[in-house]
């Protein structure tokens, strides 16, 4: 486990991406998996071919003189369409009430900035993004839902994400994205990668359906 930082910060990402690139090169075929998170990189190497001392030495050499990746090199920018509506975002109205503003204002604020993808995890293609405007931050639900539909867009504290698959989940749901975030037939599989940037764009019901979205509505309460 390589610990590079102590706190979550967007500025960590280009450093973590640069370190991941160097480690991929340094370990080559002896690299089994490299799992980046907010502040760490978990390196899984072939322990039958490399001793712990050899691996440590290789890490030190690889990270010598490390420079962060330029922001444009660290990832792509995506525009993700979202239909923001209570029938697919059952927590949208409660979140507006909590923020003391209208539903439209919640949508405007959620769409008002680019969010970096800090890391992927939880389910395939689930990108942890942030940070949302503090006024629309909200704690996780006390009782997670058993079944969150595919494409659901959620907020937990100041993080935001799209659920790529049907799964349980405790985030506040505010809308639904019609795009496939994870596709086993697609090159690279996951639409999002750590270091990418995402801008949410509000679309109406007709556009959501035209883009292939499923508008099956949800029960308002978990």
């Amino acid at each position: 486990m390589l610990r590079l930082f102590d706190v979550i910060d967007e500025a960590n990402i280009p450093w973590l991406m640069a370190a991941a690139e160097r480690l991929h090169t340094a370990f080559g075929a002896q690299l089994i998996d490299l799992v980046p998170s907010y502040t760490t990189l978990m390196l899984h190497y072939d322990g039958l071919q490399l001793s712990e001392a050899q691996a440590s030495e290789r890490v030190l050499q690889a990270l010598k003189g490390l420079q962060p990746l330029a922001i444009n090199d660290s990832g792509r920018r995506h525009e993700l369409p979202v239909w923001y509506h209570p029938s697919v975002g059952p927590d949208l109205e409660a979140l507006a009430q909590r923020a003391g503003c209208t539903v439209e204002q919640v949508v405007d604020r959620h769409c008002s900035r680019d969010y970096p993808v800090f890391t992927l995890g939880f389910t395939p293609g689930f990108g942890y993004m942030g940070l949302v405007d503090p006024s629309i931050a909200a704690p996780r639900l006390a009782t997670p839902r058993q079944r969150v539909p595919q494409g659901s867009v959620g907020i937990a504290e100041r993080q935001t994400a799209v659920y790529p698959l049907v799964s349980p989940g405790g985030w506040n749901l505010i809308g639904r994205c019609p795009l496939a975030l994870f596709d086993r037939e697609r090159d690279g599989y996951s639409l999002l990668k750590p270091g990418d940037r995402v801008r949410f764009v509000s679309v109406d019901h007709a556009e959501f359906l035209r883009l292939g979205g499923d508008d099956a509505s949800m029960e308002p309460n978990p």
Binding site: A20, I32, D33, L34, V35, P36, H44, L120, G121, F122, T123, P124, G125, F126, F182, Y189, S190, K193, P194
Partner: peptide, 9 residues
């Protein structure tokens, strides 16, 4: 399945 854990797999 290896080499895809960074995608959450």
């Amino acid at each position: 399945r290896f080499g895809v854990r960074h995608l959450g797999v």
